[in-house]
Computed example of a mutant assay.
Amino acid sequence: MKAWTVERITEDGAMAFTEQPRPAADGDGCVIRVEAAGVNFLDTLMIRGQYQVKPPLPFTPGIEVAGTVVEAGPGSPYREGDRLCALLDHGGFAEYARVPRVGSERIPDDFPMREAVALPIIYPTAHLALRHRANLRAGETVLVHAGAGGVGSAAIQLARHWGARVIATAGGPDKTALCRELGADLVIDYTAEPLVEAVRAATGGAGVDVVVDPVGGKVATDSLRCLAWGGRLVIVGFAGGAIADLPANRLLLKNAAALGVFWGEYRRHHPELIAPLFAELFELRRAGIIKPLIRDVFPLADAPKALEALGARRTVGKVVLVP
Rank of each mutant, 00 (worst) to 15 (best):
W4R: 07
W4K: 08
T5K: 12
R8M: 08
A14N: 04
M15F: 04
A16D: 15
A16C: 07
F17L: 15
T18L: 15
E19P: 02
Q20Y: 00
R22V: 15
G29D: 08
V31Y: 06
V31C: 08
I32P: 11
A37I: 06
V39L: 10
L42P: 11
M46D: 09
I47G: 03
R48N: 05
V53D: 10
V53R: 14
K54T: 14
F59M: 06
E64N: 07
E71Y: 09
A72T: 08
G73A: 08
G75V: 02
P77H: 06
R79L: 11
C85L: 13
C85T: 13
D89C: 03
H90S: 14
H90C: 14
A94S: 13
A97T: 07
R98F: 14
R98P: 00
V99C: 03
E105A: 14
I107V: 15
P108R: 03
P108K: 04
D109Y: 00
D110E: 15
P112H: 09
P112K: 08
M113H: 11
E115S: 13
V117P: 09
A118S: 15
A118V: 01
L119Y: 15
P120I: 02
I122Y: 05
A126Q: 05
A129V: 02
G139C: 06
E140T: 10
V144R: 01
V144I: 15
A146H: 07
A146M: 05
G149M: 02
G150K: 03
G150W: 01
G152N: 07
A155P: 09
L158N: 12
G163P: 07
D174V: 13
T176K: 03
T176M: 01
A177Q: 14
L178W: 05
L178R: 14
L178Y: 06
C179T: 05
C179Y: 03
C179K: 04
R180H: 14
E181S: 15
A184S: 12
V196S: 11
E197C: 02
A198E: 05
A198M: 03
R200W: 08
R200A: 12
G205H: 11
A206Q: 14
G207L: 00
D209S: 12
V211L: 09
V211K: 11
D213Y: 08
P214E: 01
P214H: 04
G217L: 04
K218W: 00
V219S: 14
V219W: 00
A220K: 03
L224I: 02
R225Y: 12
R225P: 01
G230R: 12
L233A: 11
L233Q: 11
V234F: 13
V236M: 09
V236G: 09
G240D: 06
A242M: 06
A248P: 02
R250N: 00
L252N: 07
L253V: 15
A256Q: 07
A258D: 11
A258Y: 10
L259F: 09
V261L: 09
V261P: 10
F262N: 13
W263H: 01
W263R: 02
E265K: 10
E265T: 13
Y266F: 15
Y266T: 13
H270L: 13
H270G: 00
P276R: 12
L277K: 11
A279R: 14
L281G: 10
L284R: 13
R285F: 01
R285V: 00
R286P: 04
I289Q: 13
I294M: 05
V297Y: 07
D302G: 00
A306Q: 04
L307Q: 06
A309R: 14
L310P: 11
R313S: 13
R314N: 13
V319C: 04
V320Q: 11
V322I: 15
